[in-house]
């Protein structure tokens, strides 16, 4: 049973040592919403995810990271990155259940099979990662993320290495399978942000702000629909103006 995702608020400035990385930020992540953090490379988008994940041990946050229930995010968050991070010595089924395997917990094989079926990899349970295509490997990473059953999902440009068709398929699959969770998705692809987001947080070298989506329909928005293309165009213009 999935726990209700908490609303998360990250406000402040991020530093590594004395070097300014990004901010001041005022990032509000509502419960069960897909938030895209959009911006050019090198503005600190991934660092924000690492701060949320609690893995940015070298980053200092001059500000606060809080949740509405005032509980820690530890154990409620999981991450899917640009690289799939599959373990080459484990097969697809073992990689999917890697979290449980790592913690020494009992593996629910039925759940593993069910999730791999949902991502379209039921035929590949016993295969090793190197025998799969890049798109298939990202599906395994998505299955692994889903099996962790965490309410908050951090996505760090997970579709950027895929070809156009696989990217669209993975985006639609993720939008459908991650519904009901809070998703924080770092990307520099305006089409992706326009397709998937409930809200968009724009970061440039000079400033960062929430972008109102106005009357845009809820995500996932249809590819090629005039409102999606118009949002895409607006995002592109904003990025060009700001950089």
């Amino acid at each position: 049973m999935l726990k209700r995702p908490p609303t998360i608020c990250l406000s402040g400035t991020l530093y590594i040592g004395e070097t300014h990385i990004c901010g001041p930020l005022n990032l509000n992540l509502p419960s069960a919403r897909w938030t895209c953090i959009l911006g050019p490379s090198g503005v600190g988008k991934t660092t924000i995810l690492r701060v949320l994940a609690g893995t940015a041990t070298n980053v200092k946050l001059d500000g606060t990271l809080s949740t509405e229930d005032e509980k820690s995010l530890n154990g409620r968050i999981t991450m899917m990155a640009q690289a799939d991070f599959l373990m080459p010595w484990l097969n697809i089924s073992e990689n999917t259940a890697f979290g449980a395997r790592l913690r020494g917990e009992k593996i629910d094989r039925t759940a593993v099979q069910d999730i791999l079926t949902r991502v379209g990899l039921a035929e590949h349970l016993e295969k090793k990662p190197h025998t799969l295509s890049v798109g298939q490997r990202q599906r395994v990473a998505l299955a692994r993320t889903l099996l962790e059953n965490r309410p908050v999902i951090l996505l760090d440009e997970p579709f950027s290495t895929l070809d156009a068709l696989s990217r669209i398929q993975m985006q639609s699959l993720s939008a459908s399978l991650l519904r009901g969770r809070s998703v924080v998705h770092v990307t520099h692809d305006v089409a992706e942000a326009a397709h998937l987001s409930h809200q968009i947080f724009l970061i440039t070298r000079t400033r960062s702000f929430h972008l109102s989506l106005g009357t845009a329909p809820p995500p996932p928005r249809r590819w090629g629909a005039s409102e999606t293309l118009s949002l895409q165009s607006r995002l592109l213009h904003l990025l060009m103006e700001e950089t």
Partner: peptide
Amino acid sequence: GWLELAHTMGA
């Protein structure tokens, strides 16, 4: 990346 993944998995 593997270590960060393991960290978020609570290992």
